[in-house]
Amino acid sequence: MKSLQALAQNGGGDNLILQTTIRLTVPFIQLFGLYVIVHGHYSPGGGFQGGVLLGAAFILIALGYDLPTSKRYFPVRTNAILANSGALIFAGIATLCALLGGYFLDYSILTRLLPIDPIEWRSLGIFLVEVGVGLGVMCIMLSLYWDMASGGQMEEGL
């Protein structure tokens, strides 16, 4: 690991082909991640899988360039806020169902907020929850990579 870090410090890790490829492919990876999250009702996918894909896009930036570059695209503070809000979206929707008079996590009671069919609300509630899962998983994956690759220094990645 030390020699890889030394290589990265000397600029030996920079590679034009690699960086151009990553710059071109990252938007498509993110688009595919969003597709996997929002299309989870009709095809294989869901919050966890899409979240891991979105996190992998940022990890790819951190691998191909260096760790400060990925921190510039996705700051540490934003990462912490989004990770917390991802978990809070899930718990918040669950608690909202309980506060509106239904069971914990019974989405059909949300029809009191917006009067559409309760069964449609169950479908929509699953989607909202998946968004929260996707956000949380994306941020935690990226944060795990940051800490592992730099040994906690958050400066020089692999």
Partner: peptide
């Protein structure tokens, strides 16, 4: 639930 994907 009106969700065709049973796993989801």
């Amino acid at each position: 639930t009106h969700v065709p994907n049973l796993v989801t």
